[in-house]
Design a protein around this nucleic acid. Structure first.
Lengths: 208, 208
DNA sequence: GTCTATAATATGATAGAC
DNA sequence: GTCTATCATATTATAGAC
């Protein structure tokens, strides 16, 4: 469960470069095949290190996995943290949704890694879900509630609304294969963004 | 890829009972651990058969997996097929969304099995996605488009709207651990349903 | 049809030379 | 720090008795 003793101290330039290589390759392999489906061999091959050399940097397979997860999670919540109660709600929510779509598009592997972890019961990040994530969602649900009470947007259950945003935006990364099977390869990103914003936000706008 | 030669012909009562047992246990194990994470041992233990006996019914692990997937997929699309252009759109869509939420709640394992398969590139159901699924979505997108042109609902991209429905409804099954970490155990189902219907449909309703 | 025993393989992890 | 070689284990799959 997020043992940060996993990584050895990175001191030399070669060490820190190799660590980056490993984490990048591991994100790729773990997100494609899942924790159990990924093999240390694959990760080693992908970053051009020998298996024993890779295991010199991270003693166990699980240590690589938790390192990548940790790295991903810290970045993942930044956009939600930025939701600011003092600004216009539609502007803020448009911004948040667009940023999440953008992140899912730029780094689908990270989205899939996280999806896979939660799908299988989140054994490595239970504490994170019950602690920091829960706290953050409650704080931001309160922000949305404030907007509702100020009649700046129509009423909606704030927590479920946040879930819906996550669900829809991450869908385009996690289920990309399915989306492309139906829409053809390389779906128009602007069209996607416009559609998602309309679907999620039109119901909230106060009628003119 | 969906080789239906997988199952031996089930003739005796014992055989067909055991097949059901196996498929039920396999759905559970595969959806929890993923294809690679699941072991034949686990499935055998769960349904009370010995491993060799299980492998008498399905020669290879992969055959069990494809059988379960096939079984799941056929049931999964029934609600979307029922979307009827001649009825009131809000009634029809309310019905569809409610049914999908209900299915996700009653059988989260099926939802997760499918999610896991697509997440990892859908190696076993590519043909299904590119064929039957694509055709069905195009047909039902046309239904929604008809409603829009008849001014019965506000304009929305029909395909992306279908994706959003899938994303949000399946989220409550696939990410149940996360939802419960934030909302507490056993979230109020009626409240969830009401919230999801509002979020997805309020933007479509023609102003009174 | 069902079992025990076991083969064949894949894979995580380590020992020890350089 | 990095490599080759190898161990130990887990797991799919089969052979063959009953």
């Amino acid at each position: 469960m997020m043992k940060s003793k996993a990584k050895p101290a990175a001191k030399t330039r070669i060490q820190s470069e190799n660590q980056d290589l490993i984490l990048k390759a591991a994100l790729d392999v773990f997100s494609t095949y899942g924790y159990r489906g990924a093999t240390v061999d694959q990760i080693a091959a992908k970053c051009g290190l020998s298996k024993p050399n890779l295991l010199y940097y991270f003693r166990r397979k699980e240590d690589i996995y938790t390192a990548v997860l940790e790295h991903t999670l810290t970045e993942w919540l930044i956009p939600l943290r930025m939701l600011d109660v003092t600004n216009d709600p539609i502007t803020e929510l448009t911004n948040y949704i667009s940023t999440k779509l953008e992140m899912s598009h730029r780094n689908p592997a990270a989205s899939r890694l996280f999806a896979n972890e939660v799908l299988h019961g989140a054994p490595h990040i239970r504490k994170f879900l019950n602690g920091p994530l829960k706290d953050l969602v409650e704080a931001k649900a309160a922000v949305i509630q404030t907007w509702i009470e100020a009649k700046k947007i129509k009423p909606v259950d704030p927590q479920h609304f946040i879930f819906s945003i996550w669900a829809v935006t991450q869908h385009y990364a996690d289920f990309a294969v399915q989306v492309e099977a139906i829409m053809g390869p390389k779906p128009d990103r602007l069209k996607t963004q416009t559609a998602v914003l309309e679907i999620l936000l039109n119901g909230l706008k106060i009628s003119p």
